[in-house]
Design a protein around this nucleic acid. Sequence first.
RNA 1: CGGGCCGUAGCACAGCUUGGUAGUGCGCUUGAAUGGGGUUCAAGAGGUCCCGGGUUCGAAUCCCGGCGGCCCGACCA
Length: 522
Amino acid sequence: MSKQQQQNPNQNQKQAPKTAISPTRDENFPEWYQQVVRSADMAENSETRGCMVIKPWGYGVWELIQRQLDVYFKDTGHKNAYFPLLIPVSYLEKEAAHVKGFATECAVVTHHRLEAEPQADGSVKMVPAGKLSEPYVIRPTSETIIGAAFARWVQSYRDLPLLINQWANVMRWEMRPRLFLRTAEFLWQEGHTAHETPEEAMTETRLMHGVYEKFLREHLAIPAIPGEKTEAERFPGALNTFTVEAMVQDRKAIQAGTSHFLGQNFSRASGIQFQTRDGKQEFGWTTSWGMSTRMIGTVIMAHADDDGLVLPPRIAPTHVVILPITPKEETRAAVLEAADKLAAELRQISYHGAAIEVEVDRRDLGGGVKNWEWIKKGVPLRVEIGPRDLESGNVAVTRRDQPVKAKEFLPSGEFVARAAELLYAIQQNLLARAQQFRDENTRVIETKEEFYDFFTPKNREKPEIHGGFALAHWNGTREVEEQIKNDLKVTIRCIPFGEGEAGTCPFTGMPSAQRVVWAKSY
RNA sequence: CGGGCCGUAGCACAGCUUGGUAGUGCGCUUGAAUGGGGUUCAAGAGGUCCCGGGUUCGAAUCCCGGCGGCCCGACCA
């Protein structure tokens, strides 16, 4: 691409690109993603390696995700709390599988101060001093330190269930960062609960799993397949891991939220013990579940198009942007006044129990620059109001889920009356669209040949977007999973719930209890 | 940690082969026009050419060493 620009820079500048984002999804999906994030002004890379700066527009989306998820947590009886960023290394060591899973990506704090060390050239270098007797890791997750707290808080069966959630940042030293999708530091929530019986803990695990599935569908307009992880993909230290797997537009899978049944592994490790109803001592049964800023990346890859971000209205920081068209100085004041009046009327309208968020963009920018900015930001509704509309009483409305030029003129009053309805319709349409995309790219597969063909690009040199979700049988062994992963980089994303029909594993000819979902993944 | 590529203005890059005044586009500032679609014109600001050493009258350019980044692989909530 850069070569083309070098060869013919003038032509490239004069030809207005057909799409706001280049390259397009088909041309280069990963690069398209980066450009969407940048064009929407959501986040940027920081000078701290692997970490991002989340800018107001991106953080606004996160705040809405946070706010709405939190309601579900509260509704299901959870309370928020906060635990330390730094975890003593000895805590991690308590659970063997857990420490093994996270050891390779821990940032370690070994010192507690800096000392000035004069250099030969006269400058001063600050070097770590005050070595800690026991190092800390910056939390990659908080099971161990929350477990230690739970051990203090839980004495009796009367203290159970203990239902806690924390909103926090965590750090996992990633080798290959990508904005929102995989960064060294990210924001998330982690729920941690302790229960009296395994049944109760499992019910909790499944309940929160259901909350995630519902949240994705109703708030992010993403249909996800709920199911269980195989042993190979399980959370380190968990007995069961449940996932919601979404498909994004390059047809890969992304894990959009996980809920773990931890059995007594972590309560043994942390000493979460309680006196039972019949006076015995027993270890508690714990769960944990989390959803992160990765959801923002998921939303982008699920809904954005070649003109930039497309936000589901429920998580759009601004629902309606009003663009005053002020071609002549004489009419300028009247147009702005009408725009403000329209904004005020819209703010009286309720959408999902809160006022519609409206912004009047009065910046003195020329032409369609402003309009394109809002397109790239993914605002659900754009409304133009100009001198001609003052006379006709109309406004020009464009939905972000429709083509850029699909402008509809509506009487101003009618638009106000229908604004909430339009937002519901956009939300609905995005979900339907994503659902259709997933269905079109999900295939029931019976043979090994068909399977390998499905996941092999036609053009080896420059792989096109290919594959999708494959529903195929599996004999339940780790060996098969391993083999497929080595051959195709395809893994089992989940074992879906529901009555699975038995069949034959296409890779081994052995019996299979049910079909599982295979895909390449993020 | 292995293989490849690259460090020049806020961003994207040209210039390096063949050493000789630091460039282009976007963005930014100011002014004017324009105004239902990514607008135009004019003026302007902005650089330790990654760092250190060497060769040379002279280094962004050549040589040596270092540091940093990107991509592919490996690893992976």
